[in-house]
Structures are given as structure tokens and as C-alpha cells.
Design a binder for these strands. Sequence first.
DNA 1: CTGTTAGCGCGTTCAG
DNA 2: CTGAACGCGCTAACAG
Lengths: 338, 338
Amino acid sequence: MTQRTNGRFTIEDVAALAKVSTATVSRVLNKKGQVADKTMARVQTAIVELDYIPHSGARQMAGGRQNLVGLIFPGIGDPFLAELLLGIEQSLVAEGYELLLYCTQGHSSKDRRAFLPLNENNTDGLIVFAHSLSESELQRFDRRDFPVVLLHQTPPAGLNIPCVTVENKKGAAKAVAHLIGCGRRRIAFLSGPEGNEDSYWRELGYRETLAAHGIPFRSALVKDGSFSAAVSETAVTQWMQDGIEIDAIFAADDNSAQGAIFALQQAGKKIPQDVAVIGFDDVSFARYTMPPLTTVRAPIMEAGSKAAEQLIKLMRGETAVSLTLLPTELVIRRSCQE
Amino acid sequence: MTQRTNGRFTIEDVAALAKVSTATVSRVLNKKGQVADKTMARVQTAIVELDYIPHSGARQMAGGRQNLVGLIFPGIGDPFLAELLLGIEQSLVAEGYELLLYCTQGHSSKDRRAFLPLNENNTDGLIVFAHSLSESELQRFDRRDFPVVLLHQTPPAGLNIPCVTVENKKGAAKAVAHLIGCGRRRIAFLSGPEGNEDSYWRELGYRETLAAHGIPFRSALVKDGSFSAAVSETAVTQWMQDGIEIDAIFAADDNSAQGAIFALQQAGKKIPQDVAVIGFDDVSFARYTMPPLTTVRAPIMEAGSKAAEQLIKLMRGETAVSLTLLPTELVIRRSCQE
DNA sequence: CTGTTAGCGCGTTCAG
DNA sequence: CTGAACGCGCTAACAG
């Protein structure tokens, strides 16, 4: 039984090799407490010698800090996320945290999953993007006072979880007002997926701005684009086929705008002469569409870094700001007017 | 000291509530061994009652299976990854594994990081994309016989780690041959980042095909595009400014192709009349560029699922196929000829 | 500055 | 079919 099952060394092996106690090894590992330079050097040599790394499970059990934060999000591959991650890591790395990601995409029945692989006992805190977690999961963390920050989602009623998001409604209003300023009146809206909060506020901004300018809202001019180029392409094609007259499209995100542009061009429409298009987010490819896309810039990276900052406060036991609203800004390119 | 520090319940609490031993709770949790239906029901009720989830650290220590696989990759936000993930999860979920991601992007000095947050003691195996891990880290896993599969990277010399990748050279050859067939002779190449293996083979395919058709290779026609639209845009603009004559561009990936198309159009070139463009990967946006992008389709999703399959074999203790090469295919759209 | 020791929560024997 | 008890590797007291 003294036989080591696998090639993995433990803190005891390191201690033995360095001729110190495990406590001392632990101290140098965690840079906690005082250790004589000479001793520390011996320990570090032993660590390298054995190619030792601490066992994360043991560390969890012993109750130390994990130096780990988790990010839960719905799907990968959106350029949006690249920026978000950058922002999050920027804040986190400075505090010595690593980031692990869990993607809920494809987990059709979330409830078939026994439990989240990232949770209160293997991370120090969680950042949750949009609606990637169920309300009950959020409640669970809340009950346990586990640090969680929501990104682009307001917390369920009764839960005091800090939230970081952007000024969706104002941004949408700017976009639509701009369209109207360009002389457009038949402005269509490509919404995000059902129940999406960003899309909800963007649509509200759209409606209110229309109303403010005395333009009646027409439900025929709203279709679901699901934040997806493909879905939006179909939606716009449908409008064309139905002979619905449109002189502008406000898309709930840049992916939708891309699909819209494509469908319009397929239908022989000129952008922006026949139909103007505005997106939302100002994702990296926005300047590469043809024509380059006018869009509402959301400060994604900043949102990420703010979220991480709030989480850090929580993890320190401090109180965090319950709502951080970041400003959006219209970026005018050529999809809107020459 | 019998006071529970936080609101977290343990297997003992569940056992007490269900009036059984912890061993029995463990059995129902892991569906191992025989448990009477009635007992099992009581235990499950208790679990729900307490909202209990097992402590992952304790589970790691006790040596059980983690039901967890890690994916290490360089950067997020590439549509490429969305597909890859889909493929991986498809194979993994069927076997009851969860997937956790770790992104090395932004960790400028990998060595400042004490150790990988995903490793042999908190996962059952790892999928490593391209060169996101150093050779020494790979060696470490190899020495410990820890299941690892490489995606788009051949293992370092001496390490017998299964690898899944695509037929880069053949794909590139098809692309270049097609360009030549369209009557192009001054074919430029936008390479991937220095040291990238995919790019290396794609460039080789480019050179060999040129040679096979008696077209001399000209180093002035090769520039770094870094798999990035922005970098490629600059590179192509430079070519234009230098007055270098080009009638086709073979881009090492679709991002580069997108940047190239943009730069060409800025310079007043018509695509494909003046300059034809071919990309690589057939990522989701390839059909949305204007004109739609001719590209070499890499079976990304399949690569992901094959990699996961090999990893599963390894985790079962079976031997895996050491090299899986997936075929590529030319997808002709309008960036190449009308 | 350093060593000793007591758990942390769970899976797994081994007895019943 | 069920229970008792050990030990996994580590950190945090507490002593020296």
C-alpha cells in the first residue's frame, strides 16, 4: 500500500526530497507565511525535480482558495465572446485567478445534467452570461452566498446578484433615430431569440423611437432573426417574397445584420440606397461586410472586465455594485447612407 | 466544531436524513452496486430535499471517475470553434462526460502560470487544439500515461499521442489547381501565423502545385496573414501599394480571405474578374462574404467528434489510432469565377 | 522560521 | 442488500 499507484507525486514526496515538512512546502506553494530563502530554494528544486503539481481536489478539500473563476455561457464561436473573454481575463489575471469555461450549448435538457461541472466547490466565483443558467441554479448559489455575477441578464426577482450589461434601449433608440434622420420610414426589426433580454430592450427602443417620431408600429415589420445570419437571411427573404416594402432594417445584432445584407443583395436590393441596415454590437467583422456595417457599438470588453471586477469584490467579501450599465454608441459606416 | 461553516451539505447529511449509511448514498449517486428500490427512493428524496451535490474535490481524492474532459485551445471567438465544440460534445455527451474549456489566449508568458487548471487530477482526459500547450506540458502527461488527444498538431518527437487533423496539403493543392485551371498565374499566398502546422502544409500544397504546373514560386507573393482579417487586409494593401501584380490570392484560412477581399475592393479591384480569392475551412460566414467565398472545406465538426472518440478509447484503457486524417473538399462559390 | 496534526467529503474495501 | 472505517493530498491551526 505504500506503493504509489501512478506516477503522481504528492506534497509529501516533495517534502521528503527537500528535507522539510509538508507545511513548509505548502507555504512556498502558496507564498503564504515566512520561509527562509535557502529552504525555499531547496523546496523549489524538489518541486521541479519531481515535476510536482498540487492536487486540486485535495486543495478544495482543505478549504484553500482555488484561484479559479468559472464563466458559463451559451455558445462558443461568436466573435462577441472573444472580446468578452479578453475583458474578463484582463481583470482576473491581475488578481491571480485562472478562468475556466463551461458552455451550455448542446445541453438540450439542462436538467438531465446532474449538476454544473463548475460550482461552489471547485471555483471561487462564477460569471454567468445571459440566460445560460436556470433560475433554480442561480437560487442555489444565492442561498449559499456563493459569488456570482450576471452578464447581460438582470437577476431573477428576489435574488441580489450583481449584473453588468449595456444600454440596449438607448442604443437601439440611437440607431432607429438615425435611420429616421436618413429619411427612412418603413423600418423593420430583426429580433433576437425569444426571451432574450438584450433583444427585448432593443426592440423596446425601436418601438419607442418609432412612436416618438409618429411612425406607427407594424407587427409585419418584425421577425425573429435569432441573432443568427442564417435565420435572418430566411426572414428577410420572406419579407421580399411577401412584397412587404421596407426601406431599412434594424437588426438586433451584427450576425442578423450580416444575414440581412446577404438576403437583400440576393433579392437585388442596393444597400443603402434601397434598404439601409444597422446592426448591434460592432463585432470584429462589422467593418468587413459589404458595404461596411453601421452598428451600435456595445463596449463588450469593458463589460467583461467590469463583471470580473465585481466578482472580485464579492470574492473578497466586499459588496458589489448591483447594476452596471455601460453606454452604447452609434458607429456610422456605409450600410446606412453613402 | 460540529457547526457547518457554510450552507453546504455533505453525503453524511443525506445519509442521516435518509437513515442509511454514506456508502449507500454513494451507491445511488454513482449507480454502482445494488440498492433496494425503496432505499434508493428515500435517498433520492433526501438529495433533493437538501439540494445536495457531491463535492468534486472529495470525489477526486477518493479516486473516482470525474466524468469530465478538458479542451485546451488558443483563442475563442472563431466560428471554427463553434463547430469543433459541437463535434466534440456530440461524442462526449453520449458517454456521460462533461466538457470544460481552458483558453490559453492572453497568457503571454505561459510559464508564469503555475500549472494548467485542467490536468490529470481533475479531468479524465484532455483534448488539445493546435499548439496551445508547450512540449514540456505534453511530455508531462505522456509520462503519467494521462489520456490526451491532439487536434491539428502532430505530437512532438518521441511522444505517442493520438492526433486528429485534416488533409491540409491536398486541400491546398485542390485550391491552387482550381485557380490555375481558371487561368490564373500570379497566385499569392496569405500564410497563417509563424510556426502554425496547418499553415505549413497549406503552403507546401501551394508551392508543390505551382511547381507541378511549371509556375515559378515567387517569395514576393507570400505574406503573413496570421489567420486574421486585419493582418491580411494590411498585407494585401501592401501588395497593391507596391504595385505587385496578382490575379489570385489563396488565403490560409477564411478570416484571411475576408480581409483580403476587403482590401482588394478598397483598392478598386473586382473579385473575381481582377483577382480571384480562395479561403480555407468553410467557416459559417464564408457564404456571406461578397462575393461568396470559394474555399476548401475542412470537416471541422467531424474532426472534433473523432478526437473525442479517440480520447474515449484512451480513457477506457484501449489503444487509439495514432493519426486520423480527414479529407478536405473544394467548395466553389463566386469569389473565384462567375 | 519550521514541524505536527487534525480534519475536509467521498469511494471503497470488507463484514455482516 | 447495507454499514463501518480507512485513506486520498492538502491547508490551517498550533507548538515550538
